[in-house]
Simulated assay, not measured.
Amino acid sequence: MSIRWRSLAIALLAPVLSACSATILPPSQPSDPVIVVLLDHGRHSSLVLPDSSGGALRYSYGDWDYYVMRDTALASGARALFRRTTAALGRQHLMVAPESDSLLLALHVEVVQSWRIEVERSRVTRLRDDLEQQFASALDTRVYSPWFGVDFVRHPTPYTLNHNSNYLVGVWLTELGCEIRGQPILSSWTVRARRGD
């Protein structure tokens, strides 16, 4: 597919993709609650988890060339949308807790909207341990991005339109006990309590 046709396809898909959204239903009354924070950066999402020392870890996912190497040319964007491309797992250590009012100030990226979500502590520990293991297993590919203030490593699952940052953040939230209804291809979240809560 030529660049011209890919550009046209992106333009035609944009209204459809922007209509895709998801609703997050957090778990009801976790017995040992802890706060995680979902960040909407405009087109993609990331997730902040508490670490074991009172700070936080922000995890993100994206296309390696576009996101990590900052190759934001149209051809690179089209490749990320229409092909299976090399993916990145991002990790940023923050010195503030997720529930801190200064969390957003500690980030190096724009945040359009954020949500504090209460989940079960044991699930957070399990997810954080899994993500830390994934990160450690690819440490030989690590690249630091001063643009984002994030360390990136290669992620084993290729990046695609249907397996992007919003999809993976939804998977992580599901592992934390949330229910996800819908699929935000371009970051478009709603968080609401379950009925009866």
Rank of each mutant, 00 (worst) to 15 (best):
V36N: 09
P15D: 03
S31E: 15
E175M: 02
S18F: 01
L103Q: 09
V16K: 01
D140G: 06
Q133P: 01
Q134H: 13
H163D: 13
E120T: 00
V16T: 09
S188F: 01
L25P: 03
R192E: 06
L94T: 15
G54I: 00
E175K: 11
P27K: 06
H44F: 11
E118A: 14
R84V: 01
G62A: 03
A136V: 06
W64H: 05
T174R: 13
D140I: 05
A138W: 04
Y167H: 10
V36T: 12
V34I: 11
R116T: 00
S45F: 03
A80I: 04
S7I: 10
V171P: 00
A22Q: 07
R4G: 13
Y67L: 13
V68M: 04
T190M: 02
I117V: 10
R181I: 09
S100K: 12
S102E: 15
Y144E: 08
S52L: 14
T160P: 15
V36S: 06
D197T: 07
A138G: 12
D40N: 15
S76M: 01
W64P: 07
P30W: 15
G54S: 00
I185F: 01
P27Q: 04
A75L: 14
S114Q: 15
S137P: 07
V191G: 13
L161W: 14
M95N: 08
Q133T: 14
A97W: 08
Q133F: 00
L139C: 02
A56T: 09
V16C: 05
W115L: 03
G177K: 12
S2H: 03
E132Y: 02
H108L: 02
F148V: 02
G182I: 07
I185W: 04
P30C: 10
T85M: 15
F135T: 01
Y67K: 01
V124K: 01
E118S: 08
V48N: 00
R79C: 11
R79V: 13
W147A: 03
I180F: 14
V16P: 04
R192C: 09
P15C: 00
L47D: 03
R121S: 03
L38R: 04
L127A: 03
S7K: 05
Q134A: 08
P184K: 00
R70E: 05
G77V: 04
V48P: 08
S102Q: 11
L168D: 11
P146I: 11
R6S: 08
E110R: 08
C178F: 09
L12W: 09
A87C: 08
P33A: 01
L139R: 05
M69L: 15
Y66Q: 10
P158D: 02
D51M: 13
V153F: 14
E99Y: 01
G149Q: 02
R43Y: 15
V112H: 04
S137R: 01
E110L: 06
A56P: 15
G77P: 04
E120I: 05
R116Q: 03
P184W: 06
S28C: 15
L161F: 10
V119K: 00
I35T: 05
H155D: 12
Y159A: 10
L161N: 15
P184E: 05
L104R: 10
I185M: 07
T86G: 07
L25W: 05
Q134D: 07
L105K: 06
